[in-house]
Amino acid sequence: MAVSATNTSLDVTRGAMLPGAALVDNFIMLTQSQNISGAMANSFKYAIILTAVSLCVCSLAGYGFEIFHDKGKDIVMGIILLAMMVPFAATMIPLFQMFSKAGLLNTTAGFILPTISTPFLIMLFRQSARSFPHDIIEAARIDGLNEFQIFFKMFFPTMRSTYAAAMTITFMNAWNNYLWPKVIMTDQESITMPMLVANLTEGYVTDYGVLMLGVLLCTIPTIIIFFILQKSFAEGITGAVK
């Protein structure tokens, strides 16, 4: 893939295995024909905001469900797990109608709202809160910290690897999400990287060199995130799936 990005279209289809000299040409073609910097900026904006908000909301909920659990909250948790079964296809059309009425098409809020609160993340954080010692919470309560202070000062710093795992998964999902942005991003200004790459293949002639460069640019961010967080990712998942 990386090699193909440096070749001309003709060489790519011939199966060139060595780096060619067309990288700059491909890059110029790509920047001229497509709004690549805009799509890149959009993708980063949507994915980062979604990851931050989602981690905050879901970790609060996961912690709440585990630490303060009682019958009422367990029932709510059961209902939330049911939401895991709801296929996105079933909610997509009403969501589109709701969002277009609310004027949320082509906005960041429109992109992030449906996937802020996910049963998967809530479950991940609930499992990790299970391993959080109750003695620490009791001690902190006696020291006069309120429940939110306990969460932010005690739970948040100790569960760093769970947060890293959740961050990796959420960022990747947000970055790679294709169906939902395809539905609500009707404006060319608001498109994301996966949409841009898919657009490159439309039309009669596909320039494979340019396409591969687009694919490469679309893949690099998630791979970098994965490599940075890899170690804590493995730890976080290990701690959570039991």
Partner: peptide, 27 residues
């Protein structure tokens, strides 16, 4: 503590209700 617990999970629960269950019903 019970009230604090509900405060922790309300945002997530409301979001799931609005983004999953209401659309499901409308569908």
């Amino acid at each position: 503590q019970n009230i604090a617990g509900w405060a922790f999970l309300t945002p997530a629960a409301i979001l799931i209700a609005v983004m999953s269950f209401i659309p499901m019903f409308r569908a």
